[in-house]
Design a protein around this nucleic acid. Structure first.
Length: 643
DNA sequence: ACCGATCCTG
DNA sequence: CAGGATCGGT
């Protein structure tokens, strides 16, 4: 491949890659975020036809009446969204498992026949069908997926945007739309939204109660029916509880035939002995447990909903609450809309950086150099806690320590290295500062890949409750925390990323700017940034190469960019103003090599050739290294601004 | 013709 | 750093 490899690949993916990149977006792997194995219960409830029917998406919409049809629902920005939202019913289940439906019919007949043995059977069938009705979950994350699909949730509302703006690459109107979208959120529809969500919850509760009633009715009249069930199940295959992938949805559905949901519920809760133990005790206790489980879960979900609504409606207040009530870290949405441009995508950059911490500018280089060598991991912890305190008014911050400097030889093992896991609650981390910087030297931060991952997982302004957040996304005028424009924070982040990659593909950029609504404009702006970065970079290197030549350097091999070299100073000043980032050693290597290449080329007189730099570009373009996952972390763009 | 990267300019 | 022109590749 030539030097344009990156762009070549990119070109292939630009069209499809948009969604693809975002598909990787971890935020919606809700299952991992759900606290307990019983989490599926509510999902099952919601999937139940009865419940589902009353769960109209329009309830949440701040239109008018709760159960009103979405006709008066006006989608502020994207009609497609609205259309999808209306598509909600399509996910409604076409009735549970076939056999369950069959049984249901059968049971009705038999109930009327009043034949005792069949009677019992029938009741059992009913119980099963009820529960199975609740259970019909195609996927483990039924709740999330169904709701997501239901509300036409999609990450990129600009799905068609690139195409749209293709016509006018120059003066894209996205920003205008963005402003229009963001502005109205100041209104009161949120109160309404809250109210209606509340109503929805009440409704849910009612449905749940009805279900429980129905359930216990059936149970009461025929609790002995369980006998047979128990026997039946005991017989065929005395499978060990262990060797089966229990709550797995796949097995759950396929097993549904012989193992009704409540059994798996019991298993999950480790209560199956109770069921096996007695003929008489079986169902009632199952009912109790189920009931408790449902209640418990409902309570949990309720609070989650409240949290998420509150957070969306009232980010600041929610922040505090969330921090008080949960251990689950939720980054403050910190929705700064002031950067939304009225006309052009570059507007946001008009006003550079607000506050710069004066302190950190001290004597960066000296600092970076002297204190550099390896320090114990223990002191990391120390610095974490000491710096962990933040003013209440501050939103939670991402630590600068997120990214360790990768380097030394093994680019492949860059941030995959054996990092000591540190029991560190990221929400409390606010690392800026020389202390950390020094400790970072030579040592990637003690965050395990898992930690990184979880950091990256934390969505900007979206909490773990992806389903409901998804629902919220359907609400017009809701603050979606996707930035429709690049902010100074993004610029800073991009600059830091330059230390790792000089030639990022647009796909890569999309991967690392997850909080940005990518459009053609945004993409090209980012690309342009990196182009500018490169320009500056090469100019500087060339300058120093010539200087070295003038100074009589003979051996290109002796040229080396170190942290105290002037070249480094210039580059660092440009990309890492404030010096709050530890420049990866790898970058120094790349810079050194670039310098040598320029030096050699110039010395060889190649600079007579108008395109003499191209071979060098080609070489350098292959030296990109992986960017630490920490850069994907939500809120890091904003956070970088504070430094 | 289109696209991306670079060059040049402000 | 952005806009526009230009170059080179498909």
């Amino acid at each position: 491949m030539d030097g344009r490899t990156g762009s070549e690949q990119d070109r292939d993916r630009v069209t499809s890659g948009h969604s693809q990149g975002l598909k990787l977006e971890p935020c919606f792997q809700t299952d991992s975020l759900l606290p307990s194995p019983s989490a599926s219960l509510i999902s099952q409830l919601l999937s139940h036809p009865m419940v589902g029917r009353s769960l109209d998406p329009t309830i949440i919409f701040p239109s008018s009446q709760a159960v009103a049809l979405p006709q008066d629902y006006k989608c502020g920005a994207s009609p497609g969204e609205g259309a999808q939202a209306l598509a909600f019913p399509r996910t409604r289940a076409p009735a549970p498992v076939p056999c369950a439906a069959g049984r249901d019919q059968l049971s009705d007949q038999h109930l009327q026949d009043q034949l005792s043995s069949q009677h019992l059977r029938a009741k059992r069938a009913r119980v099963e069908s009820i529960i199975q009705g609740m259970s019909l979950l195609p996927t483990p994350q039924a709740f999330g997926t169904s709701l997501e699909a239901a509300f036409g949730h999609e990450r990129e509302r600009g799905g068609e945007m690139p195409r749209e703006s293709k016509r006018k690459p120059r003066v894209p109107q996205q920003a205008t739309g963005a402003a229009g979208q963001a502005a109205p959120m100041a209104g009161s529809p949120h109160a309404e939204g809250c109210q209606q969500l509340k109503e929805q919850l009440c409704f849910l509760e009612q449905q749940l109660r009805r279900l429980q009633e129905k359930f216990s009715q059936v149970c009461d009249s025929g609790d002995t029916a369980q006998t047979q069930e128990g026997a039946e199940k005991a017989h065929p295959l005395p499978e060990k509880p262990g060797d089966r992938p229990d709550e797995d949805s796949a097995t759950a559905t396929s097993d549904a035939r012989k193992a009704p949901l409540w059994k798996s519920v019991l298993e999950v809760r480790g209560l199956e002995e109770e069921e096996d133990s007695g003929d008489t005790g079986g169902l009632p206790s199952a009912a109790r447990v189920l009931s408790q489980a449902l209640k418990h879960e409902l309570a949990g979900v309720t609070s989650q909903v409240v949290d998420s609504v509150l957070k969306t409606v009232w980010p600041k207040a929610a922040n505090h609450l969330l921090q008080q009530h949960r251990s689950l870290p939720v980054p403050g949405p910190d929705v700064r809309r002031e950067y939304f441009a009225a006309g052009k995508c570059r507007k946001p950059l008009a006003k550079p950086s607000p506050r710069n911490a004066p302190g950190s500018l001290g004597s960066p280089q000296a600092e970076a150099l002297s204190g550099a060598s390896g320090k114990s991991l223990g002191s990391h912890a120390g610095s974490f806690s000491s710096k962990g305190v933040r003013k209440p008014s501050q939103v939670p911050s991402m630590g600068y320590s997120l990214w360790g400097s990768s380097s030394r030889g093994s680019p492949s093992a860059l941030e995959r290295g054996p990092l000591e896991p540190l029991d560190l609650h990221w929400g409390t981390v606010k690392l800026r500062s020389s202390v950390v910087r020094q400790q970072q030297q030579q040592h990637p931060l003690p965050l395990s890949p898992a930690d990184m991952e979880s950091l990256a997982l934390l969505p900007a302004g979206r909490d773990g409750c992806g389903e409901l957040q998804a629902a919220m996304d359907g609400v017009p005028f809701t603050a979606t925390h996707m930035q429709e424009a690049l902010t100074p924070g993004h610029l800073k982040k991009a600059k830091l990323m330059f230390f790792f990659t000089r030639y990022p593909s647009s796909t890569l950029l999309k991967t690392y700017f997850l909080d940005v609504q990518f459009s053609r404009c945004i993409t090209s702006q980012l690309i342009k940034w990196f182009s500018n970065f490169r320009e500056f970079y090469y100019i500087q290197v060339e300058k120093f190469a010539r200087q070295a030549l003038v100074e009589g350097v003979v051996d290109a091999g002796t040229l080396r960019v170190s942290r105290d070299s002037e070249l480094f100073r210039a580059l660092n000043m440009h990309y890492n103003k404030g010096n709050d980032f530890e420049v990866p050693g790898r970058f120094l290597e790349v810079a050194s090599l670039t310098l040598r290449e320029f030096f050699s080329a110039i010395r060889a007189g190649k600079d007579a050739d108008p395109s003499w730099k191209k071979p060098i570009y080609k070489i350098i373009s292959k030296l990109d290294s992986n960017i630490p996952e920490g850069f994907k972390a939500a809120g890091c763009s904003q956070e970088l601004l504070r430094s």
